[in-house]
């Protein structure tokens, strides 16, 4: 998902202990098992803290980088209405990033540190934002599929054991539904339009379907940190469970649009009711997550440039604040 990098890049964080006693760890696990929320200043194992910092900051970075593919179409949205909607959606993504950075900061990591880790390439963000948005239909596909997949993942995160993360996710989920619905509506409008418009929608689905499925991360059998995250109730469902749920709800939506899912092995299992699908191209996934996707370099370059170009504004605001404080102290 937005934090799928956790499944690969963690080098056994959860195994490293912070010198805690068994009594402390047991008491902590008992609180988790009793569905108590853990709050910022509560005692927690170091590994729990580190896992959350990584997961929440990756999630935040994904929201921030996720503004770029959509921003690509801001000046070319087909109408003023679509442009206003897209602008509001992108502003929401920035807001989601800020809620999440705020939640991560409660764990003792600074905003500057997180931003530095993103810019240096140390921190990951979701693979999905390394794909280009080639046509307007891609904006529809992102809202429908990418935000749809995000919702699938984020709803269980509202019940995450860490209070500040859970509250941030509740706020995000309230806003995310608009994103998905506006995306579906773009697709619907295209599908009810001319042949060319419908073909454009199909092309967007073709390109975004598999990357959307990859958002849920590797298969459960290959996911290293799931068990500990499940025990700590940071994660509530496995990657494959969430992916299956997403496929099951999305296929009928594609049918409604009159679009074809680009998978010739896709079929509904009559006994289970679930859709079965072809194997995901994990090679592509690992390439994208390790920096070799179609847009990784462009995304990072743009983020670094925006950060550098904004430096003087941040400095000027500080200087202005200091000057005002001096003036009021003197008065």
């Amino acid at each position: 998902m937005y934090t799928q990098g956790l499944d690969q890049s963690g080098r056994g964080d959860s195994a490293k202990s912070g010198g805690e006693s068994k009594e402390q760890l047991d008491a902590f696990q008992a609180r988790i098992d009793a569905e108590e929320k853990i709050e910022a200043k509560d005692w927690m194992p170091e590994a729990y803290r580190r896992t959350l910092i990584r997961q929440i900051s990756q999630h935040a970075h994904s929201e921030i980088i996720g503004m770029q593919p959509e921003g690509n179409w801001l000046t070319r949205a087909p109408s003023l209405k679509r442009k206003a909607i897209l602008l509001a959606k992108i502003q929401d993504e920035a807001g989601h990033g800020l809620y999440l950075y705020g939640a991560a900061e409660t764990l003792g990591v600074s905003r500057d540190q997180m931003v530095a880790d993103l810019l240096s390439g140390k921190a990951k963000y979701s693979s999905i934002f390394n794909y280009p948005t080639l046509t307007w239909a891609d904006i529809g596909a992102i809202g429908w599929l990418v935000d749809g997949a995000a919702i699938m993942n984020q709803i269980p995160l509202c019940r995450c054991s860490y209070g500040p993360y859970s509250r941030a996710m509740i706020r995000v989920c309230k806003e995310e539904s608009f994103h998905q619905r506006q995306g579906f509506e773009i697709m619907l409008t295209l599908c009810r339009g001319t042949e060319e418009q419908k073909a454009m929608a199909q092309d967007a689905l073709n390109r975004f379907w598999w990357p959307s499925l990859m958002m849920f991360g590797p298969n459960d059998s290959a996911s290293k940190h799931s068990a500990q995250s499940m025990a700590w109730k940071i994660k509530r469902f496995s990657n494959d469970e969430l992916r299956q749920k997403f496929i099951d709800v999305t296929v009928p939506q594609a049918d409604f649009l009159g679009l074809t899912i680009p998978d010739d092995k896709l079929r509904q299992n009559e006994e289970t009711g679930h859709y079965e699908h072809s194997e995901i191209d994990w090679q592509e996934f690992f390439e994208v997550i390790s920096g070799n996707g179609p847009c990784n370099k462009e995304r990072m370059a743009k983020r670094r440039k925006a950060h550098d170009d904004g430096a003087w504004v941040r400095e000027a605001a500080r200087a202005h604040a200091a000057k005002k404080a001096d003036a009021s102290a003197a008065a």
Partner: peptide, 11 residues
């Protein structure tokens, strides 16, 4: 509701 960073109170 949460937190924000800002240079001064007004911001």
């Amino acid at each position: 509701a949460g937190s924000v960073h800002a240079a001064d109170d007004e911001m």
